[in-house]
Lab assay of single mutants.
Amino acid sequence: MDLSALRVEEVQNVINAMQKILECPICLELIKEPVSTKCDHIFCKFCMLKLLNQKKGPSQCPLCKNDITKRSLQESTRFSQLVEELLKIICAFQLDTGLEYANSYNFAKKENNSPEHLKDEVSIIQSMGYRNRAKRLLQSEPENPSLQETSLSVQLSNLGTVRTLRTKQRIQPQKTSVYIELGSDSSEDTVNKATYCSVGDQELLQITPQGTRDEISLDSAKKAACEFSETDVTNTEHHQPSNNDLNTTEKRAAERHPEKYQGSSVSNLHVEPCGTNTHASSLQHENSSLLLTKDRMNVEKAEFCNKSKQPGLARSQHNRWAGSKETCNDRRTPSTEKKVDLNADPLCERKEWNKQKLPCSENPRDTEDVPWITLNSSIQKVNEWFSRSDELLGSDDSHDGESESNAKVADVLDVLNEVDEYSGSSEKIDLLASDPHEALICKSERVHSKSVESNIEDKIFGKTYRKKASLPNLSHVTENLIIGAFVTEPQIIQERPLTNKLKRKRRPTSGL
């Protein structure tokens, strides 16, 4: 017993010596996670971090007073192994002897410093981030199933929210409404489509400006004509009531908005009720001829604005009016007729031209339509002016008669200019590109209106002035400009410049 007691005391002394060697000089306990400095002193990692955080910048070693920084600290694995072995020896000594260790306080702390507990403390002390800490805590505590279930439920809930957000973003663009038309193969669909197009076009005519009305009406008319041609002859009974509906809707729209509806009346003529396609083609032919005449008058307007600064050229074209007008009339009417003589009366030419125009518009179905009313009214106005011209010709002399006839021709041009508003800008460009020769010939008609105004002003003063002067240069210039014009009389060319000069002198006297 005595020997055993001596041996136990010796073992205890050895353990105490080893414990003092492996103590931390700051906390005076076994080193936890030993860290060595540049001066080869060993301290606990937790104690050194606490010391360095007390001051900004480098701190001093507690043993040798040298500078220490966080970067200079290094882990010493050898001392950590020695500490672990010492703890194992102490545990074995207690089991063999059955005696508690003399320094129970220190031993209890040593026992608490088992490797499992050290790992837990290291995970908390090290600044490795929240995710690494959570992982280490889960690994160190596998015995708690409640914690695992809560963490898994949190992760699953987070994943569910992310997935639901993604699915919502994908589903939202798919919620856009999609309209699908289910059509049938019955023959009544074509008639319904035609009526739908006509009503939609009328609404567009009321909303859209004048520049786009003609294009819309032309497209709708083409669509309706194609649909009529596709149907068989057996379905004509269905077409006639639908066309009557079209007429009623167009008349109502014309009564409500007459000014807006006139812009599309000329282009919509071939959508009118037709028994066969031949009647629609004839109407299209007549409309094309009318559009040609209207576009020519538009060309004359532009030329008149350009040549208004040259009064000499405008005056020299006075007698070329009849010849150029004959050529335009021959090209406007498709019928083959002989040219009228140069010395014939211009009023007779106008009456013949009106007689040619009237039969074209005397179809029984055309008179029933609303768009032809505008053309009939313009023709009636022309006839009224010609009836007035006959009365004026009986009273005035030959020279005054010529000037009045020219004035009436200008009035006719004004009437025809009203129809110019109905034609589109695209048709003007096509006419100029296809028929430049006709445009040059028809330019002379509009330029002549300037000389007509001068004659009217001469009649106000009650006299006409003449001068025997020749202007050969002007006649040559005008002959080169206009290709299809005829030779003019030299006496009238000489008379016109004198009248304008005298007018300039006598205007201030009349004002006084």
Rank of each mutant, 00 (worst) to 15 (best):
V191I: 10
R7C: 12
D185N: 03
I89R: 00
N112A: 13
R131S: 12
V14R: 02
H117M: 05
L182Q: 14
M18F: 01
L30N: 00
L28H: 08
E141G: 08
V162N: 08
L147W: 09
Y130I: 04
L137Q: 08
S59Q: 15
E100F: 12
K175P: 08
T176Q: 06
V178I: 06
V154A: 07
N144M: 04
I68A: 07
S157C: 09
K175I: 01
Q148E: 06
I21P: 03
R78L: 15
I89D: 00
Q74A: 13
Y101M: 01
R133V: 10
R71A: 07
V11W: 01
H117S: 12
S114T: 11
D189M: 14
A134P: 14
K168A: 10
Q94T: 02
G160A: 06
Q74L: 01
L137V: 08
K56N: 13
L52I: 06
S123L: 08
D67E: 11
K32S: 12
N106K: 09
S127E: 05
E29M: 11
Y101H: 03
L73Q: 01
L51A: 05
L73S: 00
C39R: 00
E84L: 12
L22T: 02
P115F: 11
C39N: 00
L147Y: 04
V14I: 15
I42L: 10
L52W: 03
I89Y: 01
Q148R: 09
R131Y: 03
L156S: 10
L118V: 07
Y179E: 11
P25E: 03
R131P: 12
K88S: 14
I171V: 11
T77V: 12
L182P: 07
G160M: 06
N112I: 09
P115C: 08
A108L: 09
N132S: 07
V8L: 15
V191S: 09
S127V: 12
F93S: 00
S157N: 15
A92R: 00
I15E: 01
P58V: 12
M128H: 13
N112V: 07
A134V: 10
F46G: 12
Q60K: 14
E85I: 05
I125Q: 07
K88L: 14
E84S: 03
L99T: 05
N158C: 04
G129N: 06
K56V: 09
K55T: 08
I171F: 05
R170D: 13
S104Q: 04
I171N: 00
R163P: 03
V162S: 09
T167Q: 11
A102E: 13
D120S: 05
E149M: 03
V178K: 02
Q94E: 11
N66I: 15
Q19I: 13
M18L: 11
S184D: 13
D2R: 10
Y105S: 10
L99K: 03
A92D: 03
Q210A: 07
F46V: 00
E100I: 12
V83Q: 12
S242N: 13
L73F: 15
I89L: 14
R163T: 08
A102K: 07
S151Y: 10
N103Q: 02
R252H: 01
L82K: 00
L63R: 14
R78A: 15
K20A: 02
S114K: 15
S123C: 08
H41V: 00
M18S: 00
K70I: 01
S177Y: 03
S177R: 08
I15S: 00
G183A: 10
S114P: 12
N66E: 07
Y130F: 12
K50N: 15
S184A: 05
H117I: 10
S140G: 11
R7F: 01
L152G: 08
L6V: 11
I90V: 10
L147G: 09
E10T: 13
V162M: 04
D185L: 08
C44L: 01
N158L: 02
R136M: 13
Y101G: 04
M48P: 01
G129D: 07
S140N: 08
R163W: 11
C91A: 15
N132F: 01
Q54I: 01
N103Y: 02
I90L: 01
S184I: 05
A5P: 02
S80M: 10
S140L: 05
L52C: 06
A102H: 04
A5S: 07
S157A: 08
K20D: 12
V35A: 15
G57R: 12
I42V: 15
S186C: 06
Y105F: 05
P58I: 00
D189K: 12
D185A: 07
N53S: 11
M128C: 09
K175L: 10
F107V: 02
S123R: 06
V178P: 05
V122M: 09
G98H: 15
Q54G: 11
S123E: 14
I68S: 01
C44W: 01
E149W: 03
S76L: 01
R71L: 15
R133G: 08
T164S: 13
G183Y: 10
S76P: 04
A102Q: 09
I125N: 08
R133D: 02
F93E: 00
E188D: 04
R71C: 10
S4T: 06
K45M: 14
K70E: 05
Y105P: 13
Q139L: 13
I68L: 12
E181I: 06
S127I: 01
C27E: 00
C27G: 01
Q19T: 15
F46T: 02
M18I: 04
E100V: 11
Q172F: 01
E23L: 04
Y101P: 15
Q169G: 09
K168M: 02
R7A: 10
T190S: 06
C44S: 00
R7L: 12
R166F: 11
Q172W: 04
T190R: 12
Q174V: 12
K38G: 13
S80F: 12
L165E: 13
C39D: 02
C27L: 01
T161A: 07
K45R: 08
I89Q: 11
C44T: 00
A102M: 04
E33C: 01
Y130R: 04
I125M: 05
Q94D: 13
T176Y: 09
L137C: 14
A108H: 04
S114N: 13
L51P: 01
L63C: 03
A108G: 09
S177K: 03
F43P: 01
R170K: 03
P145Y: 13
I31K: 01
V122S: 04
L152D: 05
L6N: 04
S127Q: 01
S114G: 08
I68W: 03
K110W: 15
T164W: 14
Q155K: 09
D185G: 09
L95M: 10
L159A: 12
A108E: 10
T164G: 10
D189T: 02
L52K: 03
E75Q: 02
R78G: 03
K55Y: 13
I31D: 03
D2M: 03
K175F: 03
P173A: 11
A108R: 05
L159V: 11
Q19L: 05
T167M: 15
L49F: 09
K88P: 01
V35G: 01
N113Q: 10
Y130A: 09
